[in-house]
């Protein structure tokens, strides 16, 4: 097991190198750099700009810059943001908290709702309940997440039941710890519900199909032939086998927490990674973009790895070598 994890992690190193190198090239391909905009500003002398360029190493060839960046990464230094003049790690941590809160909130509720519905539809296959649910799932899959978010912002802004945008209310400073938490949660609800609604349809369909596949297997016939109750057949035999592929899906979900929520964050004005990276990409804030891509890549690797480990511990037929 340990050896397997180690080998997988080693295998991913060249992929990470490739990915970061390509992103570096793409960002540097863009005409100009962050300081090009500053040149327009008459208050900043060209000499200062030249100094800043050489301080960040932007006057050297791209390859050299890349290895310079890589060397810093190996020393756990993500670099400094051009536009905010603070360490990138600080900026990212500020926003990452919110993105993680939003993602885990929506992942939790998506699974809590979609899995039972999927199993229920699998049991009622062909009946009207299943048809209605599947139709709704189609609709859910087809509504773009940003449209759900916009519709929710519209209704919330009309009815004023929830705050829109940000993480804190005006009274935040006087609030006690518990009140702060409730306040945060209230702000989280709008993007959280939007993201949850956007995810339920797809997960429901996967669960239903897995359940049906398991249910149509010969061992189900055997179970019925032994005289087991429907309850036992559904939940002891079919469900247990149907849940296995879902474990893998869960791992993949973990890997996309970073970028999955970006659009919803931007539309609902939730201060997460989405807006930060959008602005960073647009203003060519090189190290900020690189760091967030790197974190995204690492999350993807960890997600896949966790998926493999989970499935191996849940399914005795799968062996990790």
């Amino acid at each position: 097991m340990k050896r397997y994890v180690l080998r997988r992690l080693l295998q991913f190193i060249p992929l990470l190198l490739g990915m970061t190198f390509i992103s570096f090239l793409i960002i540097q391909m863009a005409p100009g750099d962050y300081f090009t905009q500053l040149q327009m500003n008459p208050e900043i002398s060209p000499k200062t700009i030249e100094e800043m360029r050489s301080r960040f190493g932007l006057d050297r060839p791209v390859i050299v810059q890349y290895f310079y960046w890589l060397g810093n990464i190996l020393r756990f230094n993500l670099g400094e943001s051009f536009s905010y003049h603070v360490p990138v790690s600080f900026l990212i941590w500020q926003k990452l908290k919110n993105t993680l809160a939003l993602s885990f909130f929506s992942i939790f509720f998506t699974w809590l709702i979609a899995i039972p519905l999927g199993v229920y539809a699998g049991i009622r296959e062909g009946k009207w309940q299943e048809k209605a649910l599947s139709f709704l799932a189609y609709v859910g899959i087809s509504i773009p997440s940003f449209l759900i978010a916009m519709l929710m912002v519209f209704f919330v802004a009309r009815t004023m039941v929830l705050p829109v945008g940000g993480t804190t209310s005006v009274f935040h400073l006087q609030a006690t710890g518990w009140e702060k938490f409730i306040d945060y949660l209230r702000h989280l609800l709008l993007p959280g519900i939007a993201l949850t609604l956007a995810g339920i349809g797809g997960l429901y369909r996967l669960m239903k199909n897995n359940f049906l596949e398991a249910f149509n297997s010969p061992y189900i016939t055997t179970a019925y032939a032994k005289g087991l109750s429907s309850f036992s057949v559904y939940f002891r035999h079919a469900l247990r086998n149907a849940i296995n592929p879902m474990i893998t899906i869960f791992g993949y979900t973990l890997s996309s927490v970073l970028s999955g929520a970006a659009l919803v964050e931007i539309v609902t004005n939730w201060p997460g990674m989405g807006r930060l990276i959008l602005d960073a990409v647009l203003s060519q804030d090189l190290y900020l973009v690189m760091a967030s891509l790197l974190i995204g890549g690492v999350l993807l690797i960890l997600g896949n790895l966790i998926a493999d480990i989970l499935i191996a511990s849940a399914d005795p037929r799968v062996r990790l070598r």
Partner: peptide, 24 residues
Amino acid sequence: MRTVEIIMMFPFFYLMLALRAAFP
């Protein structure tokens, strides 16, 4: 296949943004 894997490793949304930003 390694190339394919590298492309699939990018967070889709951010790759799209980065590619768009690479052009004026």
